[in-house]
């Protein structure tokens, strides 16, 4: 250390602190996107393949079973054919015994889409360096996201618990609800796919909520303000919109088709 004068030390330190701007010196951003944003896009691309594989598998397995041939009014659960989704998902919390096909899942879809809107609003506020607005919209996103996961928990609880009547199974016993090896709604794989697809999506929402919580704390502490940009909100926003995007597909292929 004695060979380096304090002045040289200070110069080299400031040279390290400055971002390098040369094209071949790390100063060039491919696609005009930062490293973090680009990597988030590539991660989401790989995640899209995972979910696409899940949904394609659903289509393949569903196609292997006979479709229900009778009229929708006369539909009963049977392990012989794939159930009609609106006959399985027809209950609403607090309205026991009333047939409300797909009403709850439609509400859940709207909640998640709305959380996506509040997320864009948070990103937009970040561009304007409006710390208060970023906090506000992140909190709204957290609220809607938590509501969605709670709704899904209720949906799972109801699916596992089953209907009051249950279904007379092949072995002569009446079975209520579902688990991974037997269910009252249809073929075993129907419930398996329900648990895996909505469960994997729910895990993604939960991870998103953890990231949003971190984002809110960091915004409140002024971390992003000191950094000079709210890019972290943007990156986590990308992830959150992707989770919403996946739900749009799950909604179509699991509940509508």
């Amino acid at each position: 250390m004695s060979t380096i004068s304090p002045t040289t030390q200070a110069v080299s330190d400031s040279a390290l602190d400055k971002p390098r701007t040369g094209t071949w010196d790390g100063g060039n951003e491919p696609f005009n996107a930062s490293y973090g944003k680009l990597m988030m896009w590539f991660f989401l691309l790989s995640d899209a393949f995972t979910f696409a594989a899940f949904l394609t598998t659903y289509g393949l397995i569903r196609h292997r079973y006979m479709a229900y041939a009778g009229s929708p009014e006369a539909f009963t659960f049977s392990t012989k054919y794939w159930p009609i989704p609106e006959k399985v998902f027809n209950s609403f919390p607090g309205l026991h015994g009333i047939d409300l096909p797909l009403a709850f899942v439609a509400l859940m879809t709207m909640i998640l889409i709305f959380s996506s809107v509040t997320m864009v609003l948070a990103v937009e506020a970040g561009h304007r360096f409006d710390k208060k607005d970023v906090q506000k919209w992140l909190l709204w996103t957290l609220l809607f996201g938590t509501t969605f996961v709670s709704c899904q928990a209720w949906e799972w609880g109801h699916f596992i618990g089953g209907t009051d009547a249950g279904t007379l199974m092949n072995d002569g016993t009446v079975f209520h609800g579902a688990n991974l090896s037997v269910n009252q709604y249809g073929p075993v794989l129907f419930a398996d796919l329900f648990f895996f697809i909505t469960g994997f999506h729910g895990t993604h929402v939960f991870s998103g909520l953890c990231l949003l919580t971190y984002c809110f704390i960091a915004t409140t502490n002024g971390t992003f303000e000191k950094r000079g940009h709210y890019e972290m909100v943007e990156k986590i926003g990308l992830y959150w919109h992707f989770v919403d995007l996946v739900w749009v597909f799950v909604f179509t292929f699991f509940y509508l088709v």
Partner: peptide
């Protein structure tokens, strides 16, 4: 209709429409 919805989420919310062509 689902692909339409996906387009609006990816293009507008995820801002992909406004990124470079390469991305």
């Amino acid at each position: 209709l689902t692909i339409f919805k996906a387009f609006f989420i990816v293009a507008e919310f995820m801002h992909l429409k406004h990124e470079t062509k390469g991305l």
